[in-house]
Nucleic acid binder design. Structure first.
Lengths: 344, 344
DNA sequence: TTGTAGGCGTTATCAA
DNA sequence: TTGATAACGCCTACAA
């Protein structure tokens, strides 16, 4: 109402052309509610009115204020996604189908990187909750107690991905990292390798994979399985860790299980530099089946996880919960596959 | 006020524990505004009051509603980021510092993939504008006319990245793709290559790089520079396009400029498969300086763009504009560097 | 230091 | 088919 009697002609500070439904309605000769209805359900408005409203929208360049809509309807049409790192292809490639699936239903993605610190994750979760997302994706199943409490209290659908647990906050879509480590151990055993070592970098899940591998292979072979560790999982680290295994830990050959394909490629490079043949002197297994796995020479034997399917399933599980029902299952194990190539 | 006289004890449908500042205030014996103040500026509230409010917040698990806050204050504390693809490391690696820089100032990122279609981008921009972001990042400088119109009308800070233009919507942080193509041509000429070809996949910017390369090298050498193209820029495409150049386009040797490092790696692989030596029979130049560039054998000569600096500069430019002032410059050219390794 | 009043721009609920 | 009215939960004056 107090629009025409605004006495400040020049530089009306905030939102100079903040067109509202009120303004559109005035121009179209209808009330604000009718504009709202026209946008949310055109069938409830007469064709003539609809036309006038459309016209007014086009002329004014009106874009509805979704913040106000969210406040009134208690539906933000936003979904939060929290991943450790978006430059890691592993997370980015689940995010893409996740986001696409939700976008097709009108949701937008509020994204944050959490790093690997549970406390940082908790702070991020709180920031996201304040935006009242209609659902939340978390990476991993280990969170600060406060995180769990906030999430349960917020009564919002949550999906934890890229790992498995019997006690999810709400929904869980992932696979068992320990099982994937044991699968590599089984493979090594069946392929006849007598000795093995591990190379590990990165998060707690990577460590769980390697620990499971080392324990399983160690038990069945009755040998010690040395595991070299570092924090950053790049090519240089892979090279350095193989050097460490050979030069300092007395590793003389066998199968080397790596916690990522990139590390494994580093191992291949270091092996070549030392004149070691792969898989003759040294067999290598990676994790992730990134594109490079099939491209390197020799091709990398590795564990594949269908990340696209995982992201999509996570989105669908959340949508099912948003739609009111319970999804068919709370726990979805998407599993993994050992892809055998030439490196082991 | 109608909280105590609510007659529905069981399953109060929506937001069952929607704690508000009102409720926190009641518990702490103060009004709603005081709670608001306590949160936004503790120094304006007495220590005792502050303590009671803190207590009430802890007990209730109150999380402020940022939607309501945004509506009232006209500041959403969200920044939109639109990139063609998040699985492309090129975009992801500028997004990470961009997001980090903004996060430190309290902003959150609303992310969307736009693909490479301007119309899709326009629709996404509209969806984002409805959320009233305090700033927007767009990838590239070519947009649908409607996009430009909406953005100008919305009166929101905009930064276009990963390209350059004399006529930005608002701010621009990037580099000249044509110049990078010419830089490769200059290098090829100075290194003594007499013939050259191009391999191109992906977006319009990739095509501009290759076109500039082909024109520049073609002119100075007086030779024809064949360019093989495809849409998807993976390893297989690199292999296939080199095969096309050799088998169908009569390319017999010289320097091959590729629009990405991944394509270039494909070329290296195909060359090895054909028994061609690099750089002896065939020299290869990539683009992007991804990690693989230094890791492949031979090391890949390529163009490096400081993507982290770019993302950070984009964030800082937007923050400067948000803070009311004009940034020191509207156009920031972050440039590029030719990294010479063994492949050319 | 604290409180009251009046929006912010929608959606939900009735009533016409 | 349309409109009036009351939320939604917070912030910005202004007053005490």
């Amino acid at each position: 109402m107090s629009q025409s009697d605004d006495p400040t002609p020049i530089s009306r500070k905030r939102n100079p052309r903040g067109v509202t439904m009120e303004a559109v309605g005035r121009m179209a000769g209808v009330s604000q509610v009718t504009v709202s209805r026209a946008l949310s359900d055109p069938s409830k408005v007469s064709p003539e009115t609809m036309a006038r409203i459309r016209e007014a929208i086009a002329v004014t360049g009106f874009v509805p204020n979704a913040l106000a809509g969210a406040l009134a309807s208690r539906k933000s049409m936003m979904v939060s996604a929290l991943v450790p790192s978006i430059t890691n292809i592993v997370y980015a490639s689940m995010l893409a189908p996740f986001s696409e699936e939700l976008k097709s239903r009108g949701y937008q993605i509020l994204l944050s990187e959490t790093g690997f610190d549970p406390e940082e994750e908790a702070a991020t979760v709180e920031a996201h909750l304040s935006r009242r997302p209609d659902a939340i994706l978390l990476t991993g199943v280990h969170h600060a107690p406060r995180t769990r409490r906030m999430l349960l209290g917020a009564d919002v659908p949550v999906v934890e991905v890229w790992d498995m647990t019997e006690t999810p906050i709400d929904l869980c879509v992932g696979f068992s990292h320990a099982a994937s480590g044991r699968a590599v151990a089984d493979f090594a055993r069946e392929a006849g390798y007598r000795r093995a070592a591990g190379i590990c970098a990165g998060d707690e899940r990577a460590q769980r994979r390697l620990a499971a591998f080392a324990e399983s292979f160690g038990q069945s072979s009755g040998t010690e399985v040395p595991v070299a560790r570092t924090t950053r999982g790049n090519l240089a680290a892979g090279r350095a860790l193989l050097a460490e295994l050979i030069d300092e830990r007395g590793f003389t050959g066998g199968l080397v299980a790596c916690s990522s394909d990139v590390l494994a490629q580093g191992v291949l490079i270091e092996a070549a530099a030392r004149g070691l043949s792969v898989p003759g002197d040294l067999a290598v297994v990676g994790f992730g089946d990134q594109e490079l796995a099939a491209a390197v020479e020799p091709g990398l034997t590795t564990i594949r996880v269908n990340r696209e399917a995982l992201g999509r399933a996570a989105a669908q599980a959340l949508l099912a919960r948003i739609d009111g029902g319970n999804p068919s299952q709370d726990l979805i194990d998407v599993g993994f596959t050992l892809i055998r190539r030439a490196s082991a």
